[in-house]
């Protein structure tokens, strides 16, 4: 469904992505993980058209989307959320979600109805008339997701929707995400909350220093010494192995 090949992106002298390839199968939940500064959010921003790649190719639904503007990519059905939530602050929750729904609904009334339905799905029904700015962080994360979902995307790029949530909120959001996938939306998610990754993702892609260092099931990558080193520092995997042996 999404095929990213050999993506490169530099910011001045800093190389954020050097040859990242990601393939996501239709109907799957894939997690993109890696230590801070690995280039995960840059990868998302580039795939969604917010950064132009220096090199590499991106295909979505069989079309070459390399160099497309973000709004065009979104209209094709590939929609991102933001790690740092970006609500339309002074608009109500209802109006926020309706902006997403307007992507396929021209009539105001239909978009507002759809917004309400999406809000109910995501547990935001009680907050519909509140200004987005007044929601607590968990609410704003849900709003970010609701707005993206209201566009009726084919695929969502979820950037740390679990971050900043307490364990109860994480537990409440997990079935929602599974439901979205069951509704036919393919998901690629950046996530640090490992409980969520382990329970949701069928496949894991590990990014470190702008490169993909491992792919596989969560169990496979967690055992991979390269991955352990990337998180805990060079040689950590070996030291851990010694420690367990002793």
């Amino acid at each position: 469904m999404l095929d990213v090949v050999d993506l490169h992106r530099r910011f001045g002298g800093v190389t954020a992505l050097s040859g990242v390839s990601i393939a996501v199968r239709q109907g799957s939940i894939t997690a993109l993980i890696g230590p801070n500064g690995a280039g995960k959010t840059t990868a998302f921003a580039t795939i969604a058209g917010f950064h132009r790649p220096d090199r590499g190719q991106m295909r979505f639904l069989g079309r070459d989307i390399t160099g497309w503007r973000p709004e065009r990519i979104a209209r094709l059905g590939l929609v991102r959320t933001f790690q740092i939530v970006q609500p339309f602050g002074r608009l109500s929750v209802r109006d926020n979600i309706a902006v997403g729904a307007h992507l396929h609904l021209a009539r105001r009334a239909s978009a507002l109805t759809e917004a309400e339905a999406v809000a109910r799905r995501l547990g935001l029904a009680a907050d519909l008339d509140k200004p987005a700015d007044t929601l607590p962080i968990a609410g704003r994360k849900r709003l970010e997701l609701a707005r993206a979902l209201a566009t009726r995307p084919r695929m969502l790029l979820l950037d740390e929707v679990m971050a900043g949530l307490n364990p109860a909120e994480v537990a409440a959001l997990m079935p929602v995400i599974r439901e979205i996938r069951d509704g036919g939306v393919t998901l690629l998610m950046i996530e640090h909350v490992m409980q969520a990754v382990a329970e949701l993702a069928e496949r894991c892609i590990v990014l470190a220093e702008g490169r993909v260092i491992a792919t596989g099931t969560v169990a496979e990558v967690a055992r991979d010494p390269v991955v352990v080193d990337a998180y805990l520092g060079e040689g950590a995997a070996a030291r851990l192995a010694d420690h367990h042996a002793a």
């Binding site: 917010f50 979104a74 933001f82």
Partner: peptide, 10 residues
Amino acid sequence: ENEDAARALG
């Protein structure tokens, strides 16, 4: 309110 968020929604 937010241009980037608007672009992300098409």
